[in-house]
Design a protein around this nucleic acid. Structure first.
Lengths: 250, 250
DNA sequence: ACTACCCTTACGGCGCGTAAGTGTGT
DNA sequence: AACACACTTACGCGCCGTAAGGGTAG
């Protein structure tokens, strides 16, 4: 037998055989006068056994001990392999579940599905900037909120997306997007008042949930992120809203 | 944010972050006067999105296209990922099945379970040499027989292991193992006659199955392997048996 | 002269882990 | 002076794939 025959019989590539030679897993056979390797049946047997063991998921490193010594720790070995396989399978199944959930959505693949699903209707009519910023904020939020808070946050977003409120939210959002150097401070105050009237209760609920389920640095980061995407007038608006909330509290 | 903070927020290691820098997946941030990296929220957002995509099983190589360009081929991409995952899972489940079958057996891990399960009783009392050779032969045979023939071969082995025949087979085996330089040719002829009487029909069935389900080179290899483990007297015995079979045929 | 093999050496790839050696913040 | 950080460069892993460059069999 020469390399090609051996490899074919064993169902592997010639490269694989030579790799096994390199790491000392398969003994080098004798050579013909021309330097070609000349294999004997014992090599094929060894190669086939190696193949059976790798098919179990055993690393090459462990195989010499099993083939040359006796395979003492039978059951422990098998149990270890099986447990490792089970963990791997579960991991892959998790991935499949995420993928399955994602196919039903039109949102980007990297948005957290559980929070974002309700968000799509709220994006209607918003500026590209606002949409991008909102999605980024969601990614941040999803990473920083404790697992127990996810449901609470999701429920809040769903409340916004409720048809009774969604139209209002869209309109407020559009007015926010339109804040520009032309906007007067009276108009800003106007919008802030409308915001608090319509969304005051929601904002308080949001703050409660955030206080319960996120850390202080999380909220700092979220705030920093939100500010990055805003125009000066939008920041002014935010300041007015914040002032009014503080005022209410007293 | 410095490296450590960024990494902790994103749930990865600092090394991972730097790897992403190296392959151009994450932009290098500005540096402080001392050379430390100073990250901004946009880096964290990017890193989190990368994390969401890798969690789906996407290779890092594909991620820039998804984050920077639009993710056009949504469904195809997801389907491809899902199919790949499914294949992987099936492969791992195959491994688990093999492992499960192996735990019930006391044979070495690298013997083909479906053929070998019936073989254990026949090894009782045989020489170490014969046992080793027999198992090796099984490995060879399992690799060379067509899938359809496995059941037929398994059935043949089970016939040998049938209590009615097993004792005879064991005894013939032991006598075969004992062939040595002291053995006379009359004793060899004696054993050959016993062999043919007891196992003639089985041998013919075996030859039929082999002719049906293996190639000529497979049988050549098996014969070569069997001969390697035999003493001269055992080879003599084999020659006598072969001659008698040829004689019968005429 | 063609084709299909054989040989050897060596780099690549995925996604980082793990040093090794040096400087910085407190 | 200790300690936890930061920085860079570079090798390692598991299992080969894939050349590159050259000889050989039929």
């Amino acid at each position: 037998m020469r390399s090609r025959d051996l490899a074919r019989f064993a169902g592997v590539t010639v490269r694989t055989v030579r790799h096994y030679h390199q790491i000392g897993l398969l003994a080098e056979p004798g050579r013909d006068a021309n330097g070609y390797r000349r294999y004997r049946v014992e090599h094929l047997v060894r190669l086939l056994r190696i193949g059976r063991l790798t098919a179990l998921g055993l690393p090459l490193r462990d195989i010499p001990a099993l083939l040359d010594g006796a395979g003492e720790p039978r059951v422990e070995l098998l149990d270890g392999l099986d447990a490792a396989l089970e963990r791997q399978i579960e991991g892959l199944q998790d991935q499949r579940r995420i993928i399955a959930a994602l196919r039903d959505s039109t949102l980007p693949l990297d948005t957290p599905h559980d929070l974002a699903s309700a968000l799509a209707p709220l994006e209607v009519g918003r500026s590209a900037n606002a949409i991008r910023s909102g999605r980024e904020q969601l990614v941040l939020l999803a990473s920083m909120i404790a697992a127990e808070g996810r449901a609470a946050i999701a429920e809040l977003y769903e409340r916004l997306a409720d048809p009774a409120l969604a139209v209002t939210v869209q309109e407020l959002g559009r007015r926010f997007d339109d804040l520009s150097p032309d906007t007067t401070s009276a108009e800003i105050a106007d919008l802030a008042a409308a915001y608090l009237t319509q969304l005051g209760p929601w904002l308080r609920a949001y703050e409660t949930v955030m206080a319960d389920f996120t850390g202080g640095d999380a909220r700092t980061l979220l705030a920093a992120h939100a500010l990055e995407a805003m125009t000066p007038q939008q920041k002014d608006f935010l300041a007015v809203v914040a002032a009014k909330i503080a005022q209410e509290r007293d």
